[in-house]
Design a protein around this nucleic acid. Structure first.
Length: 276
DNA sequence: CTTACATCCTGATTGC
DNA sequence: TGCAATCAGGATGTAA
């Protein structure tokens, strides 16, 4: 489940492997993603050079020559792999939806079994007008994401603090896995009403948000089942999870069994003793 | 405005 | 053993 650390890991890998390459072919094999991929993508994209790879929240932004941007979201099960011209790097895998061929014979392939993701080619300047990006909250590493901000924005809110953290308009990039991890480290129960979280607790939440995400980026993300980076490798953070996917297992702080509940239709994990 | 919930989709897992 | 039901979840749209 790609969240900020997975997309950031992908960004870093692609920045090293495909920046400077020119796109020489593009094939859309399945356009029906969350947003329809332009079937004539090739018309505009061929001949453009990949100038930089950016990221905003969970969106990967492939910056092309001429001011175009190929915006990619991995949804739940998407992957973007860089398959070399090398032996043993097959194309045409099941659920390969978009294939870009680069000028060194390698391929950048978007694959997504569940098709919850998207790939959209933005015209120059279009990115500034996109509601999806405009409505996003601050990046978790930005200085404006702090205890005061969280305190201010949560006044009067009755929803669970976990849902607040996963709301992309509040903070960009936190998903279900890291929300549980952040609240475990901050020692705040995920069901707590956001409006009832104290300022001191918000300070811990802000601090732990950056800490967890930074560590996860350092481990190249979390692979529970399906996440793979652009080299086809799983992330290394799964073994470092303290709450997520540990239902019934002993809390690493106090040995109380970790509890699994559903909040906002999403599985959530917490220690009933450590998290108040 | 906020909150709750259904929806999209396929693969892995669980249950009988 | 095999098949059917269930679960997984990011973002969005609708309703209350």
């Amino acid at each position: 489940m790609p969240e900020l650390p997975e997309v950031e890991s992908l960004r870093r890998l692609l920045a090293r492997s495909v920046v400077g390459r020119t796109i020489v072919a593009a094939v859309v094999k399945e356009a029906r993603l969350r947003r329809i991929v332009a079937p004539d993508l090739a018309v505009t994209i061929i001949g453009r050079t990949i100038e930089a790879i950016g990221r905003r929240a969970k969106y990967l932004l492939i910056e092309l020559s001429g001011g175009y941007v190929l915006m990619v979201h991995l949804g739940m099960s998407g992957s973007l792999t860089h398959r070399g011209a090398a032996f043993g790097d097959p194309l045409n895998a099941r659920h390969d939806h978009v294939e870009l061929t680069l000028d060194d014979g390698s391929h950048l392939v978007y694959n997504d079994p569940r098709r919850f993701g998207l790939m959209v080619l933005l015209s120059p300047g279009e990115i500034e007008t996109l509601a999806e990006l405009k409505d996003l909250g601050p990046e978790p590493f930005a200085k404006e994401f702090n205890a005061d901000y969280l305190w201010r924005i949560s006044r009067g809110r009755k929803g669970a603090i976990k849902n607040l953290l996963m709301d992309q308009r509040i903070v960009a990039g936190v998903g279900n896995i890291y929300a549980s991890e952040i609240l475990f480290r901050a020692r705040v129960r995920p069901t707590r009403r956001a409006g009832r979280v104290t300022r001191v607790e918000f300070a811990r939440i802000a601090e732990k948000t950056a800490e967890v995400l930074r560590e996860a980026v350092g481990s190249r993300g979390t692979t529970i089942i399906s996440y793979r980076d652009s080299q086809g490798q799983p992330g290394g953070f799964a073994t470092k999870l303290r709450a997520y996917d540990r239902g019934g297992e002993p809390c690493l702080e106090c040995t109380t069994p970790i509890r699994q509940i559903v909040i906002g239709q999403r599985s959530s994990f917490y220690c009933p003793r450590c998290q108040k």
